[in-house]
C-alpha cells in the first residue's frame, strides 16, 4: 500500500528560507574575510611570536604588584563614583521614559531617543573624547563611566518601573496626591530593591570597563597596562591582568551575593 505524501508548498519543498539564509551568511562571510584580510596561514606562520609573548606573560613579575595596588584602588573608586553619578542622573530620566507614569508620548519618545543615542557610544570612545576635554587623569574616567552607566541604568530602571503594580498609585491618585508624593510613596518602595540590584550589576560592568579606560589616559590601572605593553614588559602586563581578574571576581562575588540577598 502506498500513501500519497501531500506536496509541500514550494517555499518549503525547495527549502527557500534555509538555503537563502545560508547563502546570505556565506556571502557575508566571504565578503568580510576579504575586507578584513583574514589569513589563517599568516596566523600560524607568526605563531612563534605569539607563543613567545604568551611564554613571557606566563612569568608574572610579582614584585610589580605593590606598585599597581594604588591604581587598582583608583580603578574601583572611579567605577563607584561613575556608577553613582550615572545612576543618580538616570532616575529622573527613567521615570520620564516609563510608559505607565508618563502618558505624553512625545516626551517619552524624546527621552527614549536620547537614552538610545547615549547607549550607542562605546565606553572607550567616550574616554578618548573626555581625555581630550579634561586632560589625562581619573576625572575623564569618572565622567566616561557616569555617562556610560547613565545610558545603561536608565533603560534597566524604566523597564523595572513599567512592571510595577499600579494599584497603590491609583489609590494615592484618587485621594489627590501630587506626582512627587505618588512616586515617593507608591513607586519607590516597589522598585527600590531592583534598583539597587541593577546598580550593583552596572557597578560590576563598570569595574571591568574601568580597568581598560586608562589605556587612553582616563586613569586607573589601564594607564599601567598601556605602559607595560608599550615597553614590551609582558611579565608586568600579566601581573596587571591577574590582579584585575582578582579584583573583578571579588567585586562580582560581593555584588552577586548582595543581589541575591536583595531579591
Amino acid at each position: 500500500m502506498t500513501t500519497q505524501i501531500p506536496r509541500r508548498p514550494w517555499l518549503q519543498r525547495w527549502h527557500v528560507k534555509p538555503i537563502g539564509w545560508t547563502l546570505i551568511i556565506l556571502i557575508l562571510l566571504v565578503a568580510s574575510s576579504r575586507m578584513t584580510g583574514v589569513d589563517v596561514g599568516m596566523f600560524f606562520s607568526n605563531l612563534g611570536q605569539f607563543t613567545d609573548l604568551l611564554v613571557r606573560m606566563s612569568r608574572p613579575a610579582w614584585d610589580y604588584l605593590p606598585i599597581i595596588l594604588h591604581p587598582l584602588y583608583e580603578t574601583i573608586q572611579m567605577a563607584i563614583l561613575g556608577t553613582t553619578i550615572g545612576a543618580a542622573f538616570a532616575v529622573p530620566f527613567a521615570v520620564l521614559a516609563a510608559s505607565n507614569l508618563v502618558h505624553n508620548r512625545w516626551l517619552r519618545g524624546i527621552i527614549r531617543l536620547i537614552l538610545d543615542l547615549v547607549r550607542t557610544l562605546p565606553d572607550l570612545l567616550l574616554a578618548a573624547i573626555f581625555v581630550a576635554i579634561f586632560g589625562i587623569g581619573s576625572t575623564a574616567g569618572v565622567v566616561t563611566l557616569a555617562i556610560f552607566s547613565f545610558g545603561m541604568v536608565s533603560k534597566l530602571f524604566y523597564e523595572v518601573i513599567e512592571t510595577i503594580d499600579m494599584g497603590p498609585l491609583e489609590a494615592l491618585e484618587s485621594v489627590g496626591a501630587n506626582k512627587l508624593t505618588i512616586i515617593w510613596y507608591a513607586v519607590l518602595p516597589q522598585i527600590m530593591n531592583q534598583f539597587v540590584s541593577y546598580f550593583l550589576y552596572t557597578l560590576e560592568i563598570n569595574v571591568r570597563a574601568s580597568t581598560v579606560l586608562g589605556y587612553l589616559g582616563a586613569g586607573g590601572i589601564g594607564v599601567f597596562l598601556q605602559r607595560s605593553l608599550n615597553e614590551f614588559n609582558y611579565s608586568q602586563t600579566s601581573v596587571i591582568i591577574l590582579a584585575t581578574l582578582v579584583v573583578v571576581m571579588v567585586i562580582d562575588g560581593i555584588s552577586n551575593h548582595l543581589r541575591r540577598v536583595l531579591l
Binding site: D39, M42, L245, V248, M249
Partner: peptide, 26 residues
C-alpha cells in the same frame, strides 16, 4: 577567565601575531 581578560589586551597580543589591522581585530 576569558570574559574578564580585557579585549583590548587580546587585540594587542594578536597584533603582535598577525600585525596591525582588522585581522587582529577579528
Amino acid at each position: 577567565l576569558i570574559r574578564t581578560f580585557p579585549e583590548i589586551v587580546l587585540a594587542i597580543m594578536f597584533i603582535k601575531a598577525v600585525g596591525p589591522g582588522s585581522y587582529a581585530g577579528v
